[in-house]
């Protein structure tokens, strides 16, 4: 049985969890078994509506003590639910919550862990999962040797597939231990598309000359319902906040479309974005290494090109 951990952020279920549900439901079908979802804490969402992603059953530990995500507490609760359900496979997103709890669960359950799966496992002979390694420059096929296993799903690697259906929601009771970590404050971006969730990312580099010129980056991102990002020098110069930095030492993203404006494309930057499905590069310098990794490009001045792109997108969206 496949148990899918459904992550929440501020009592809302986010896109990365829809992707994990799709992955888990498909995996269960592949293994000729059933899938169930697991939600911890209270929620503002209608859980039964998650049936549209193919889930028929969801368990919820409806306990306010789980509204804060504490890695140790979540590990105890998820491990208990996993054992009680008689599950052998645990699926969750490789988002930041997944990174905090999956390694702990692997130890607790003695279950082999593959982080950041990019496709469904090969279950023809064993259980082999493909994941990106070497910062997106290669893939590894990882065999899980244990009877129990945990797979975390790389954001944007699997498209959430929805149809119709309603899930049956069952409230379960699991003893919740006291947390050793106290959450003092939390600052979550509201109403904006988070960089990890975004299907389209518009990113700016040093070529934009200063933070005052980010208006066109933000405008294009907004028009495309995407997020904004930046290169390392831009974050280091504090033109943009740290969490927007993508690259080897920043975040790694894999959107459907990555538009790089005024970024030369050093190998360290590419390491954070090379799994984007389509890459567009706009740069004045025809020798910019980024063009070699791009699908589409314009050799030109961003200050002339970007306003025209924005106009063309506006026209298209009318």
């Amino acid at each position: 049985m496949v148990l899918i951990f459904i992550d929440q952020s501020e009592r809302k279920i986010k896109k990365t969890s829809f992707e994990a549900i799709t992955y888990g439901v498909k995996l269960a079908a592949q293994l000729n078994t059933t899938a169930a979802g697991l939600v911890l804490g209270q929620t503002d969402d209608d859980l039964s509506s998650l049936g549209k992603y193919g889930l028929t059953k969801i368990q919820q530990v409806d306990d306010a003590a789980l509204n804060d995500m504490d890695a140790q507490v979540y590990t105890t609760v998820i491990a208990e639910a996993f054992r009680n359900a008689g599950a052998d496979t645990l699926v969750m997103s490789a988002n930041l919550t997944g990174k905090a709890i999956a390694p702990r669960l692997s130890v607790r359950l003695k279950a082999g862990l593959v982080t950041g799966a990019v496709s469904l496992p090969d279950t023809g002979n064993g259980f082999v999962v493909k994941k990106a390694v070497f910062s997106g420059k290669a893939f590894a096929h990882v065999a899980v040797q244990t009877p129990q296993r945990i797979v975390t799903v790389s954001p944007n690697a699997i498209r959430a597939e929805s149809g119709s259906g309603e899930a049956q929601v069952e409230k379960i009771t699991v003893a919740v231990p006291a947390a050793k970590v106290k959450v003092e404050s939390r600052d979550v971006l509201k109403g904006e598309v988070s960089l990890a969730d975004a299907e389209i990312v518009v990113s700016g580099g040093r070529g934009l000359k200063g933070p005052e010129n980010w208006g066109m980056i933000e405008e294009l991102a907004k028009l495309l319902h995407g997020a904004t990002a930046c290169s390392r020098p831009v974050a280091d110069a504090h033109w943009r906040p740290h969490h927007e930095h993508v690259g080897q030492t920043g975040g790694a993203i894999a959107p459907n479309l990555y538009i790089a404006v005024g970024i030369s494309g050093a190998i360290q930057h590419l390491a954070g974005v090379n799994r984007s499905k389509t890459i567009v590069v706009i740069n004045k310098d025809p020798e910019a290494p980024f063009f070699k990794a791009a699908d589409y490009g314009i050799v030109g001045d961003a200050f002339e090109v970007m306003p025209k792109i924005i106009e063309a997108v506006k026209k298209l969206k009318q």
Partner: peptide
């Protein structure tokens, strides 16, 4: 160990950039 790497794979090479004139 709980897992092992069976094999590695390099991503397919990019087809090459399609350049659009700046104007």
């Amino acid at each position: 160990s709980l897992t092992s790497i069976e094999k590695f794979e390099l991503p397919p090479a990019k087809a090459g950039v399609k350049l659009v004139p700046a104007d």
